[in-house]
Write a protein that binds this DNA or RNA. Structure first.
Length: 357
DNA sequence: GTATGCTTTCGGC
DNA sequence: TTACGGCCGAAAGCATAC
């Protein structure tokens, strides 16, 4: 089973203030540059009718909604995290195995819980939806299928407040008309390569010769695509207890190439990230920086050490060195935003286990 | 030729 | 007319290993 909370941040805001729920609700990340500088994080369905969606500039959204009753709100992550935790705890109760994906999605293995009975599974989904609505006043869309691949695609078919059940017998027919892009692992580039082979739908992918797929994509990917087209996916629902990376990014007050100024920002970002990792008693092997230029081009650099990094100072120095090197290579533009990321986590001595690592 | 791991970019929300 | 966040994991590309 895959559960997806509907237009999550905006829905939480509607819940907090029901007066706005008939209006367009737009949750925004303001960059601090004044006016309406910033981007839309999420919008409710009323706003989406006017083309307002995640990622577009706030000023653009305002212009699209100028003739509509609309509410623009700043993101309140603490609130969304709390509601998310509450809902995740409801979901966890019903799962043999539970896998949270981000703040608003989860996979539940319910095979044993419903005795492999699809009717029971559907009833369980209704119970779950009712409990989440009653306790947290939030709707979600649920997909049920024989595996994660099918369940996730199913959850995306009917939104918001949807429930889509795909029985093993129906899997082929359900998938056949859908775009290959619905398959996790097929992005824009792979979609293009498949199109060159005359493949656009999952049905066409299923009908395609396996050997030729392997010739084009290699054994691993070729077999994965072939299986996926038939709705075959053995990947387990697996608890994730540690994020794979921790990052922070800021928008600078003004575009600049002043290294000293940017180094000060890096210090702050690094300190913040470092304090979070220390709380969890983890160390890390990789440091990355991301720079977004004035033309919004994104450039990044990273460095992986052979053994875990201990100190905050090493993190800061590594990030600053990466930035200096990057700016030597990118000499054309001013810098608009700057970010620091750590990954490749290693547990400190004395801890038992870090799953997946 | 394929697998693996690292680096950089992409894309969802 | 233009407008532009912050975070995460996935995808893509490449080098090297087997």
């Amino acid at each position: 089973m895959h559960v997806d909370f509907d237009y999550f941040f905006a829905q939480v805001e509607e819940r907090e203030n029901p007066k706005i729920e008939n209006k367009a609700v737009v949750v925004c990340v303001y960059s601090g540059r004044g006016n309406d500088a910033g981007a839309v994080s999420t919008a409710n369905y009323k706003a989406r009718q006017y083309g307002v969606k995640s990622g577009i500039p706030i000023a653009f959204a305002k212009s699209r909604l100028k003739d509509v009753e609309a509410v623009f709100l700043p993101v309140n992550h603490r609130l969304y995290d709390e509601v998310s935790d509450n809902i995740m705890n409801i979901l966890r109760k019903y799962a043999d195995e539970f896998e949270q994906v981000g703040v608003d999605e989860a996979f539940l293995d319910i095979t044993a819980n419903v005795d492999e009975d699809l009717e029971k599974a559907k009833k369980l989904a209704v119970v779950i939806k009712e409990e989440i609505l009653r306790k947290e006043k939030i709707t979600c869309s649920i997909g049920i299928g024989p595996n994660k691949l099918v369940a996730k695609i199913a959850a995306g078919r009917q939104k918001p407040n949807g429930l889509t059940v795909v029985s093993p017998a129906d899997v082929r027919g359900f998938l056949a008309p859908l775009s290959v892009r619905e398959i996790v692992g097929i992005g824009r580039k792979t979609e293009g390569q498949l199109k060159n082979l005359g493949i656009q739908t999952i049905g066409q992918l299923a009908a395609f010769n396996l050997d030729q797929l392997i010739n084009t994509f290699g054994k691993n990917l070729g077999m994965y695509f072939h299986d996926a087209a038939f709705g075959i996916d053995e990947s387990p629902v697996k608890q994730r207890d540690q994020a794979e990376s921790i990052s922070r990014i800021v928008t600078l007050k003004e575009n600049t190439r002043d290294l000293a100024l940017m180094n000060k920002e890096i210090d702050e970002l690094a300190e913040d990230i470092h304090s979070r990792i220390m709380e969890q008693g983890l160390s890390f092997k990789s440091v990355s920086i991301t720079v977004i230029m004035e033309d919004l081009a994104i450039v990044s650099r990273s460095k992986t050490f052979q053994s875990p990094i201990e100190g905050l100072e090493t993190l800061k120095k590594t990030a600053k060195d990466l930035l200096e090197q990057l700016l030597k290579e990118e000499t054309e533009h001013l810098v608009r935003r700057i970010g620091v990321k750590i990954s490749n986590f290693i547990m400190e001595k004395g801890q038992t286990k870090l799953s997946d690592f």
